[in-house]
């Protein structure tokens, strides 16, 4: 079982490697909104959902596709913990 810190790092690495290049990979905060910063777009968020679904063996329901669940590294981590904990 991963600790929260490890899980957060894994999610952060996925975001950085999938959507950012070079120096940008270190230049965002875990609290940054993906939408406000433009890191992730409307098709990108589906990749994020696909990642947490396969990585943490969970299903994201249609009505869970909201910013409070998905819109930052911290929100994603808390959401995964709520769903799988």
């Amino acid at each position: 079982m991963l600790t929260e810190t490890e899980m957060k790092q894994k999610i952060r690495d996925f975001i950085a490697e999938t959507f950012l290049i070079g120096d940008e990979q270190d230049s965002f905060e875990n609290t940054d909104s993906f939408m406000a910063t433009g890191i992730v777009d409307s098709t990108g968020i589906l990749e994020v959902v696909g990642f947490i679904e396969s990585e943490y063996e969970m299903t994201v329901e249609d009505d869970e596709m909201t910013p409070s669940n998905l819109d930052s590294v911290n929100n994603l981590t808390e959401f995964v913990i709520r769903k799988t904990g």
Binding site: F34, M35, V40, D41, S42, G44, I45, D62, D63, M65, T66, P67, L70, D71
Partner: peptide, 8 residues
């Protein structure tokens, strides 16, 4: 402008 979250 928030189509990223279609629920919104």
């Amino acid at each position: 402008n928030r189509f990223m979250y279609p629920e919104l």
